[in-house]
């Protein structure tokens, strides 16, 4: 059974994007969070966490976000580690998780319409670093995939770990608010 270690934990509702995991993976953003969480405008907002030793060689990932989407319309990034993993919402409200292994993205998606707009939901994506991917919404398993995909690499420069936006560009930006974000790596 894989063991996960929490390496990023941002509780935006506390008014800070400091990392509570103890690994110093603080979020850097031009926007300040407030008691209602971190606002994302769907155009240029993002929280960046730079590559660090604790984000190198993730092995597996577990990402969880408590969010309220205001609008979908296009793919909305929740968390993406450059060339490692991505977790996003599709325009049709499907949840999508993927890992980068063997120079290709391996995707798991739920049925459409699982992520609503206008209310808070709790979503998570897990890849166990071996052969299991799962997606869940509000405590319910929404999709799973069993494939030997091997270990996930690390979060790399130049883009690092991006929360709420596609690392490469101001696109696929989340539109809404995030209250809390967690990221675990496989325990070393």
């Amino acid at each position: 059974m894989p063991g996960f270690e929490l390496v990023v934990h941002h509780r935006y509702t506390s008014g800070s994007s400091a990392d509570l995991s103890g690994h110093g993976n603080h979020g850097h953003s031009a926007t300040r969070p407030d008691p209602d969480g971190m606002p994302f405008d769907g155009r240029g907002s993002r929280v960046v966490v730079f590559p660090s030793p604790s984000l190198a060689d993730l092995g597996g990932v577990r990402a969880r976000v408590r969010l309220r989407a205001d609008a979908l319309a296009e793919r909305r990034t929740l968390v993406e580690g450059y060339l490692a993993f991505s977790f996003s919402i599709e325009p049709d409200g499907a949840l999508l998780g993927s890992v980068y292994a063997g120079l290709q993205w391996h995707v798991l998606a739920t049925a459409p319409g699982l992520v609503p707009t206008g209310r808070w939901v709790d979503v998570s994506f897990v890849y166990d670093g071996l052969d299991l991917m799962t997606l869940s919404v509000d405590g319910a398993l929404a999709a799973s995939r069993e494939d030997n995909l091997g270990r996930v690499g690390g979060v790399e420069w130049p883009y690092g770990l991006n929360i709420g936006a596609w690392p490469d560009d101001d696109v696929r930006v989340f539109d809404g608010r995030m209250a809390e974000v967690w990221l675990w790596r496989l325990r070393r």
Binding site: H28, S29, A30, R46, V48, P158, Y159, D168, D169, D170
Partner: peptide, 19 residues
């Protein structure tokens, strides 16, 4: 325009004002 945002300078502009 998209490409310019992916140049090294383009990446740097994503970092401006973050901290």
């Amino acid at each position: 325009e998209q490409y310019r945002r992916r140049t090294r300078r383009g990446v740097a502009t994503l970092l401006i004002g973050l901290d």
